[in-house]
């Protein structure tokens, strides 16, 4: 059983939903992002998404775009991202780590070598934003060979007839992109979410995480009241950005501010009892 499956099984047994925060590697520098990553489990993270910076994040809104550019400026490369995960794993063997990024840096690294090195570093799953099922063969074999989960995105535009195609080859969990749009913009309403989830549940037994536009503890709690997990990215990155000095460098406030906000989100998520909704 993969670390991701184990974590969701434990949460299910406890009747809890999961909070999945996002940290952009090397934003604004390696040490700061590693400190945030290391602090996340104690602040309530159940799983963690680590963003792999890319120069052209065309599915992301302004907040993640800026974080990616800060990450690149801060020295991010695929090698550095994997180093960061390895450093995290030295102190945490339980919290699943999912890398989120775009195809080209993986292709440049070499898909097979990437999957081997990612697994060795302690990565558990991959979300490749611009790799729909139609292009998934690039990673399918090496990911499977190395026991990495491929987390598939599913969108409001995905018709029912397409769901089996999307979920074929998916593992770990399913990421529901709750709005048509880029990250960190509009928020889906509770009604929209409540309407969307049953059609996904009919098509998959995998846990479902909701992401895009979840900015507050209330929204995060709403999300886990219908789904299994809530992903929060832009809201945390906005907080991080707000603590940087005029040159874009981290300050003494950076790590505590992000973790403090994470604690508030986690408390709200963990206050939702999941036993009734299943």
């Amino acid at each position: 059983m993969s670390r991701i499956a184990r974590r969701f099984a434990t949460l299910r047994a406890q009747g809890r939903g999961a909070l999945i925060p996002y940290v952009e590697a090397c934003d604004p520098d390696y040490d700061t992002s590693l400190a945030i990553l290391r602090g996340m489990p104690a602040a309530g993270a159940d799983l963690i998404e680590v963003g792999v910076p890319f120069s052209d994040p065309s599915a992301d809104g302004p907040t993640i775009q800026k974080a990616a550019l800060r990450g690149l400026k801060g020295g991010a490369s695929m090698k550095r991202v994997l180093e960061m995960v390895r450093a995290f794993r030295e102190g945490d063997d339980g919290t699943p780590i999912i890398l989120m990024g775009y195809t080209n840096p993986i292709e440049a690294y070499g898909p097979e070598r990437f999957c081997m090195d990612a697994k060795a570093a302690g990565v558990d799953g991959l979300i490749v934003v611009d790799m729909p099922p139609e292009e998934a063969d690039l990673l399918a074999a090496p990911a499977a060979a190395n026991g990495l989960d491929i987390i598939r995105l599913v969108a409001p535009t995905t018709p029912d007839a397409r769901l089996p195609i999307v979920f074929n080859g998916a593992s770990g969990f399913v990421y529901y992109v709750s709005i048509t749009g880029v990250t960190g913009t509009r928020t889906a309403s509770t009604d929209e979410l409540a309407a969307a989830l049953p059609r996904l549940r009919r098509a998959t037994d995998l846990p479902i995480a909701i992401g895009f536009g979840i900015r507050t503890p209330e929204r995060a709690a709403n999300a886990v009241s219908v789904a299994d997990a809530a992903v929060v990215a832009s809201a945390l990155l906005n907080t991080l950005e707000g603590t940087l000095d005029a040159d874009g460098k981290a300050t003494a406030k950076t790590v505590p501010a992000v973790l403090e906000q994470l604690r508030g989100l986690a408390d709200a998520v963990h206050a939702v009892s999941k036993t009734a909704s299943k």
Partner: peptide, 19 residues
């Protein structure tokens, strides 16, 4: 698959794929 040899394809987010 929209390929010319190894080139081309449809590397887009799932939201756009049905479109």
């Amino acid at each position: 698959r929209g390929r010319f040899g190894i080139f081309g394809g449809r590397f887009v987010a799932e939201t756009l794929m049905p479109l």
